[in-house]
Amino acid sequence: MKTYRYPSVLTIAGFDGSGGAGIQADMKTISALGCYATSVLTALPVQNTTGVRKIYPIPVEAVSDQIEAILDDVFPDAIKIGMVHTPELVETIVKTLGKYKKVPIVFDPVMVATSGHRLIEEETISTIVQQLFPVASVITPNMDEAAILAGMEVKTLDEMRTAGERIKTLGCNSILLKGGHQETQTITSLFLDQDHNFHAFHAEKFATQNTHGSGCTLSSAIASYIAQEKDLYSSVELAQNYVYEAIKHGRDVQTGKGNGPLNHFFNPQKLIKHELV
């Protein structure tokens, strides 16, 4: 009898009990795109669609133990890293992953929630830049996060380009600057690749409050397409299309009293099976 394996994606991220962001959004996305989802919890935010109320930390030893348990057993084809809110947590994740074979990493520098809440400690940023940026295949900041990283205002497309170039000098391999906060009718995101080339992705804006977890969804979608052995540019392009459609198909649904979730399962794929040789 033939045996098979699923393309596997590990998400290392925070919790969202309301189901729209964090590990919950990641696992929905990975599953909807036909991959097998595993997870490591980094923090326990108490939140709903209206915002974050409190964040309970997870001991760093518990994070390290979780990573080792997964990588010793269900080794991933790609890794998505989301909420890392302390320097010790960043160091622990990088050190633990460094014990294993290198895997493509998509890092979503979660610093500001959709609701506007700041989610990261100030001293964590330099540790992220020094230790996590160099090992990530791509980072996916939104405009608020790009402004923090670049140390400048980021409101326009030109400012996004300047910020991208500044962030690249911090040691990133490639950057997807998300343009979802633009006030123009057409939203433009910019992908700055490893060779310093910019690629623009355009999408028409439509009215909706249901964008909670869109950044988590995008980064885990990129990781899912990488796990399917697509190149980085194609993975970014396909992931952007997936998020656009997930927002579009969930725009007329009310879930909660604030920013509602995406419709991750607008077109779910069956689990992909690769034959083991």
Rank of each mutant, 00 (worst) to 15 (best):
A163P: 00
A223P: 01
E159I: 06
F198H: 06
N197F: 15
D158Y: 01
I222T: 03
A147E: 07
L149P: 01
N173G: 00
H212F: 13
C216E: 06
S224K: 03
F201Y: 12
Q194G: 04
N197L: 13
T162I: 14
S214C: 10
R161K: 11
G215H: 04
T162L: 15
H181W: 08
M160P: 02
S220P: 00
S189L: 09
G151Y: 13
I222G: 01
L176K: 03
H196P: 00
N210C: 14
F206W: 02
T188H: 04
F191A: 04
R161H: 01
D195M: 11
S214G: 02
L157R: 11
G151L: 14
F201S: 06
E145N: 05
E145I: 15
I148E: 04
S214Q: 02
A203C: 13
E165D: 06
T184H: 05
H181D: 04
H196F: 07
E204Y: 10
T208P: 05
F191G: 07
I175L: 08
L157W: 03
T208Y: 06
S219Y: 09
S214R: 01
T156P: 05
I222F: 03
Q209A: 03
N173L: 03
G151V: 12
H199P: 00
D195P: 00
A207N: 15
T186H: 07
F201L: 12
T162E: 11
I167A: 08
K205E: 02
Q194S: 15
A150I: 13
I222P: 02
K168H: 02
N173T: 11
R161W: 00
R166G: 04
G213N: 09
T162N: 03
E204W: 06
A150P: 07
R166L: 12
S174A: 14
E153M: 10
L177G: 01
A150T: 08
L170N: 05
T162M: 11
K205N: 02
T208S: 06
S214A: 15
L170G: 06
K168I: 00
F201T: 03
A147Y: 08
K155W: 02
A200D: 13
